[in-house]
Amino acid sequence: MLPEPDDAGLRLYLLGLMPEAEAEALEQAYFDKPETLERLRAVEDDLLDDHAADRLREDEKRAFEARYLASPPLRQRVMAARALRRALAEAGRPAAPRVAGRPGRSGTLPLALAASLLVAAVAYWRWPAPGPGTATLSPQPSIEMATPATASPSPPPSGRATTVAPTVPVKVVLALSPVLLRGDQPPLAGRIPAGTDTVVLELEGDPALLPARPAEFEAAVATVEGANVWRGPADRARGVSAATRAQRLASVEVPARVLPPGDYVVTLSATGRESIQRYFLRIAR
């Protein structure tokens, strides 16, 4: 077997300039090894960026355009690279705002959690507008409760909150964000008012993490010590959270009775596959 080419060699493959026998060997290597495919995609990104920035030599440019502009799927990558180049130029700086925590400080939670844990738990109205039969009972401004059975499109009575009938199921919505836990600040805690039947967890995150092909999702709730508390189906959600403006991946309804005050880890998975994202959930007293 031929040794794997260096980055310059990979670039020759992408430009269609690699001898056929070597190209076939490389293809077999990236069919076999994910890391080889990733290397190749990274070299391709650099190639696309170099083209967008007009940094290719004339011969490279000719080879690039003969291959990449002739194919609609590859042309899409060229357009995306141009768009990205524009965004970087408009940003006008070499570095974007840092979104994770401070450098050099590792989290205090186990490594498996630290990779994808939550900092914030935000609660908000689940239904479009508080209507009749919806009451705000929370001692904290960030947590409210709603009764879906009464989420009527009709306008609420002026200035009055009606009493919630005790037989109507009451839901509380918590939006969980997967954020690296590195700062000193503790995660915000959600509070579940007495009388709540169901806690709806809106799981936010990067849609790119979801599998490309259709899948069923499930969520599991465990204490931070590892005791399983609940497991059930999660509904794929789309759109942007009204509270945090972040992308919603899925929502899941958990019986409130299984969530006494404490710290929990919520794991979102595609059924039968590895986890997609984990979240930290703190329920306050």
Partner: peptide, 11 residues
């Protein structure tokens, strides 16, 4: 994109 992903890709 989520804000975090947006910032990461630009950086």
């Amino acid at each position: 994109l989520a804000a975090e992903s947006r910032a990461l890709i630009l950086e």
